[in-house]
Nucleic acid binder design. Structure first.
Length: 172
DNA sequence: CCCTGATTCGC
DNA sequence: GCGAATCAGG
């Protein structure tokens, strides 16, 4: 059977992924059929990527891709991808704005691939939900993307190590 | 050697 | 869109 990514499958995937489960764990949790590669691939396709470190935070610094096939002329940069957003990834919604968070309608089940994945509440709680609005940039809507990708150089922590978990913690 | 995620490419 | 293959790091 082909692993057709249904709503429930994607929902579980997103949920587990945001919870901090590793790709292999999610893949196994899904029952099989899907490999960790498939999970990761789907996760990336959905637009998710980068959250709390599972166990071994493999910080990728440089990926020159692999010339497996006879790539003739890959001299074209094609597209800068979404690395720009990734750079400003650390989403510290500690104190954004007087943004009226009234969503909470989008759950892991109803959450669409292009819905704003702004975390509302505890990911492990049943009350957990997402913004749900139309994701404009990355995985967030316009408003949330604005505060999410804010180059905000909050002092206090010189290193500025902002983890999603910590962000969620503050947000809860 | 185990694990992790990330990326690219072929289907 | 999906997933294997591969890469790179811890």
């Amino acid at each position: 059977m082909t692993a057709g990514w249904t709503e429930d499958r994607v929902g579980a995937l997103t949920k587990l992924w945001l919870e901090g489960q590793s790709a292999s764990q999610i893949a196994k949790a899904l029952g099989g059929g899907v490999t960790r590669n498939a999970v990761i691939g789907k996760v990336h396709r959905l637009g998710l990527s980068g959250r709390a470190a599972p166990s071994q935070p493999a910080r990728t610094t440089y990926r020159p891709t692999r010339p497996r096939a006879a790539a003739p002329a890959p001299a074209q940069p094609s597209a800068p991808r979404r690395i720009e957003a990734a750079q400003s990834r650390p989403v510290p919604p500690t104190r954004p704005d007087p943004t009226p968070e009234m969503p909470g309608t989008a759950t892991v089940m109803t959450l669409g691939a292009h819905m704003c994945k702004w975390p509302i509440g505890d990911p492990s709680s049943t009350e957990f939900s997402f913004c749900g609005r139309r994701a404009s940039e990355g995985v967030y809507c316009v408003e949330h993307a604005r505060v999410a990708y804010q180059p905000q150089v909050k002092r206090g922590s010189k290193d500025g190590s902002t983890d999603l978990a910590r962000s969620l913690r503050r947000y809860i």
